[in-house]
Each structure stands twice: as structure tokens, then as C-alpha cells.
């Protein structure tokens, strides 16, 4: 199951990259396409933050992951590097669980 997901994702992602190199550059004249490609990641990433932090199967829960997110947000606001953000967030959840 994981392998088929990996191969399909690889094909789809490469398909977009290769299509961009193949199509005429006049597609850039369509503002809707340009907007969709730049805005869609924001919507999907915001949703991934929500599902990764608050979802447990089909229910919404509050647990140590929320503390991770708060610590991560604080680090990002302080303009700390990506690794510091991720490590601090991991340490926060680990600390809450160890209490």
C-alpha cells in the first residue's frame, strides 16, 4: 500500500514539474492558474497543521502536540532556523509527556 502511494505521488509530482517545462509560457497569462498554484499550498499546509496537531482519527483532541505547535510558532516568530523550530517542538511534546 505504501509503495503504491509512493509511486503514484512520484508520478504526479514529476508530472507537474515536467509539464511546466513542456508547456508554452503563455499559460502564465492566465491569472487564475497562477493564483491557484501559489495559494493552494497555503490552504493545504494550514489544513495539515490542523490535522497533524488536533486530529486523532475522526475526533479533535488537545494533547502534548498543541504545546509543540505553540513552541514552534514562538520559534518561527523569533525567526529561529527550521531545525531549532522542529527540535524545540519535539522537546516540548516530550517534556509534557514525561511530566
Amino acid at each position: 500500500m505504501i509503495w503504491s502511494a509512493v509511486l503514484l505521488t512520484a508520478a504526479g509530482c514529476f508530472g507537474f514539474k515536467a509539464a511546466g517545462w513542456a508547456v508554452p509560457s503563455t499559460v502564465l497569462d492566465r491569472p487564475a492558474l497562477r493564483k491557484a498554484a501559489t495559494l493552494l499550498p497555503a490552504a493545504l499546509l494550514a489544513a495539515l497543521v490542523i490535522t497533524q496537531v488536533f486530529a486523532h482519527g475522526r475526533s479533535l483532541t488537545l494533547d502534548a502536540r498543541v504545546v509543540s505547535l505553540a513552541v514552534g510558532a514562538l520559534c518561527l516568530w523569533r525567526r529561529l532556523p527550521f531545525l531549532v523550530v522542529v527540535l524545540a517542538a519535539a522537546a516540548a511534546a516530550a517534556a509534557v509527556r514525561a511530566l
Partner: peptide, 20 residues
């Protein structure tokens, strides 16, 4: 879970979202 990796993934998504 003990080292908080699940929480770190949420923060990683926030980090990718942040500049947008």
C-alpha cells in the same frame, strides 16, 4: 511519541506555511 516527533511534524508544517 516519547521524543515528541509527532508534535514536531505539526511545527514543521507551520514552518513551511509561515513564509506564505
Amino acid at each position: 511519541a516519547a521524543v515528541g516527533l509527532d508534535g514536531a511534524v505539526g511545527a514543521a508544517f507551520l514552518g513551511l506555511l509561515w513564509p506564505r
